[in-house]
Every structure is written in C-alpha cells, then in structure tokens.
C-alpha cells in the first residue's frame, strides 16, 4: 500500500480517489479503515458518507471521530444494501482481500451508480522480476506481506481486472495507474506499459 501522505495529511492514493468524487453526493466506503477518506470527503466535499470496515479497531477509530461506520465484511454484508442507495461505492485496496471479488464488484455496481476501485497491480515489473528471477512470491512496498501472512488472497493484474470488467459488462469510465510514490502515470490503463509500470490502479466503474 502506498503510504505517502499529502499536505492535508491524507494518503496520496486516497486523495486521488477523493478527487474523483463529486461534492454533496452519497458515498459508501467499503474497507474504510479508520475513516480517513470519509473524514476528508465530509470536510472538503460535504459528502454524506458511510463506511464498512472489517477491523473493530478501525471501526472504533472512525465512529469516535463522528463518522458513520459499521463493522462488516465486503463479502457478506453488501447484499443487505438496496440498489442505487449511493452515488459512489468505493473499494480501496480491498478487492484483493475478498473471497469473491467478482460478487463484490457486482454488488458495488448495484448499490452505487458508480464504483471507484483501487487495487495493487500484480503485473508490476518488480513483482514479475521477483517471481522470474528469484522464484519467490513478491514482497514489495505495495505488497508488504509474506505469502503465509498476507490477507490478500485474490491478486490480479490490471489486465486481469479489465477483462473481468468486460465479462461483467462493466464500463471503465476513467482509470489511471500510480507509480511507487503514488503519482499518477500518464499512460492509458489498458496499455501493456501501464500493466508493467503501474504499482496500483484506480478505476471509476459504471454499469
């Protein structure tokens, strides 16, 4: 995960996601952690935000700040929400940790008119090099776990993700990749270079 923060104290990748959200909209942030993005969206964009977070520590931190966050699981709890309940359903750095990424994606686009999804790109050249050169599972800044401890159980490359969107009839409305410092790369996300040099991808999805 890219840990650099901006001058507002919000993580660079979260700030990039926040920039994609229209002011005064309804947002559901799934895997919202301690609520940093929701807090920023509320203060800067007057967003009516809700969050779901798996870890109770994250939930308590968020609720203690006055944010509307519940303890829950992207895999099991999204089905409860009615269709079109939100303008945006945001899933940041969580898709790869879900049991059923496909079902989660479908639910995101049922609940939200748009979904914003960010995920680490397993196709990044450093990952490829570690497997090819050392024959080992990659451990990098953005994938900082050993194989036996990682919560990430469904890795994909940017290309894999695009293909799943095609299969599900999901339109990728906007997308970009980030370098290891969290800066956006000026390359189209479907390009081979993006899949090689992007550490992380952020996509705005539409039904």
């Amino acid at each position: 995960m890219i840990a650099t923060t901006t001058s507002n104290g919000i993580r660079v990748d979260l700030k990039l996601i926040a920039d994609l959200v229209e002011p005064r909209t309804r947002v559901l942030d799934i895997g919202c952690g301690d609520g940093a993005l929701l807090d920023y969206l509320y203060k800067v964009k007057q967003v009516d935000g809700r969050g779901i977070e798996l870890s109770m520590a994250g939930v308590r931190a968020a609720v203690s700040q006055g944010l509307s966050v519940i303890q829950g699981d992207a895999d099991t709890d999204l089905k409860d929400y009615p269709s079109d309940a939100f303008d945006y359903a945001i899933l940041s750095q969580t898709l790869q940790a879900t049991r059923d990424p496909r079902g989660v994606l479908e639910n995101l686009l049922r609940i939200g008119r748009r979904a914003i999804v960010s995920f680490p790109n397993f196709g990044h050249w450093r990952n490829r090099l570690q497997i090819l050169g050392q024959g080992r599972m990659p451990v990098t800044e953005s994938l900082a776990y050993q194989w036996w401890e990682t919560p990430n159980i469904h890795f994909c490359t940017i290309r894999d993700f695009s293909e799943l969107c095609d299969t599900l009839g999901i339109t990728v409305e906007k997308s970009f990749t980030l370098d290891r410092h969290g800066h956006p790369l000026q390359r189209p996300v479907h390009s081979r270079r993006a899949n090689l040099f992007g550490v992380e991808a952020i996509c705005v999805l539409k039904r």
Partner: peptide
C-alpha cells in the same frame, strides 16, 4: 438491527465493544 438498517440505507454506525 444493523442489517435491517442497511437494507433501508439508513445512516448507521455499529461498534462491538471488547
């Protein structure tokens, strides 16, 4: 209760205290 509130897109926080 939380699931029912989610089903009507209510504004809800939920904490289980250890």
């Amino acid at each position: 209760i939380v699931h029912a509130l989610n089903a009507v897109a209510a504004n809800v926080s939920f904490v289980e205290v250890n």
